[in-house]
Structure formats: structure tokens, C-alpha cells
């Protein structure tokens, strides 16, 4: 018999961090938090849980990415317009901090755009720090498959962040 009171208390901080890091919004993170544990209840009823943190991180990541897709989907598509790359080369304010935060915003938007399985794998490995093996177990795929998802995910994300690449020498003023 699962002690859900203990589960929520023990792993709540992990789920909260996973949700908030992706969503960067308290109300959305709270919504994701609750939906994660409710989904865990459903999952635990159907099969034994080998690793609570792994499973909960996976569910929280998937739910948060869903919310990001709902948040960004129309604008994210529009952001596929060839944005003027001069934006990242113009003199900003406190340049490093502003650029870094712009990158984080851009990465969240890009995660909402790419294939969901690739996004999930990227988040579990690169943000949550899971090993390939643990991520594969959480996702229910082979380690090789997880590696392929991660590789493709990184390529897709890198493509969407190309506007931030300082080596991009294209002239500004592109048109859709």
C-alpha cells in the first residue's frame, strides 16, 4: 500500500523544481505539480514503481512540456520566421545576463516546438541530470533509442537557437 502522504512530501521538492524550471511561472508550476502526482496515482495502480524520483521527474517533465506547448504553440510557430539575427548583436543593457535569460526563454519556446519525445529526453538527460539508462527506463525505451532521441532533439533545438549563434553572418532583414 503506497503512502502517498510520504511520497508527496518526500518528492514534492523534486517535482516542484522540475515543473518550475521549465514553466517559470508559479501558477503553472502548481498546476503541473498536482497533475504529476495524480498521474502517478494512475500509473502506480497499473505497474510497480522501480524509481519514484525517475518516474515523477518524467511525468512532471511531460506535463510541463505539454503546458509549454499550449503556451507557446501559436507564437512559437510564428517565431520560425527568419528573425533578424541583428537582435543578438545589438548593444543591450547588462549584456551577459540579458542574453543568458533570452537564451533560456528561447530554449523553453524551442522545447515546446520540437518532437515531444525528443524534448522529454533532452529535459530528463540535460536538465534533470538522469543517465541515459535511467532516462531510457523512465521513458520505457532502450538506451540506444534514448540516445537517438537525445541526438535528434539537440539538433532540432540547436537549429531553433541559431539566431543566437555569434558565427551567424547572414544579413538582417529577412522576409518570411
Amino acid at each position: 500500500m503506497t503512502d502517498w502522504n510520504a511520497i508527496v512530501h518526500e518528492y514534492g521538492p523534486v517535482v516542484w523544481q522540475t515543473a518550475y524550471r521549465l514553466l517559470n511561472h508559479e501558477a503553472d508550476a502548481a498546476d503541473c505539480f498536482q497533475r504529476t502526482f495524480l498521474a502517478a496515482v494512475e500509473l502506480a495502480a497499473t505497474c510497480p514503481v522501480r524509481s519514484w524520483p525517475g518516474m515523477l521527474k518524467r511525468i512532471a517533465t511531460a506535463r510541463a512540456l505539454e503546458q509549454l506547448r499550449n503556451r507557446y504553440r501559436p507564437a512559437a510557430r510564428v517565431e520560425c520566421l527568419p528573425d533578424s539575427p541583428l537582435a543578438d548583436r545589438l548593444a543591450p543593457g547588462p549584456s551577459d545576463l540579458a542574453e543568458a535569460k533570452e537564451l533560456a526563454v528561447a530554449l523553453r519556446a524551442a522545447l515546446a516546438e520540437i518532437d515531444p519525445a525528443q524534448a522529454e529526453t533532452f529535459c530528463l538527460v540535460c536538465l534533470e541530470g538522469l543517465s541515459y539508462a535511467d532516462a531510457a527506463t523512465a521513458l520505457g525505451v532502450t538506451v540506444t533509442h534514448a540516445g537517438v532521441l537525445l541526438s535528434r532533439g539537440r539538433a532540432a533545438l540547436r537549429d531553433r537557437l541559431r539566431a543566437f549563434d555569434p558565427s551567424n553572418q547572414h544579413l538582417p532583414g529577412g522576409h518570411p
Partner: peptide, 19 residues
């Protein structure tokens, strides 16, 4: 690499104490 930079920033993004 912008992706590596963005990943580092997102990984280290401040999270308010919670839940």
C-alpha cells in the same frame, strides 16, 4: 554553442523555495 549556454542557464535557473 548557444544550446549549451541555454542549457546551462535553464539548468541553473533560480527556483523559488517550494512547493
Amino acid at each position: 554553442d548557444p544550446l549549451d549556454l541555454a542549457t546551462d542557464v535553464l539548468r541553473g535557473a533560480p527556483v523559488p523555495a517550494g512547493p
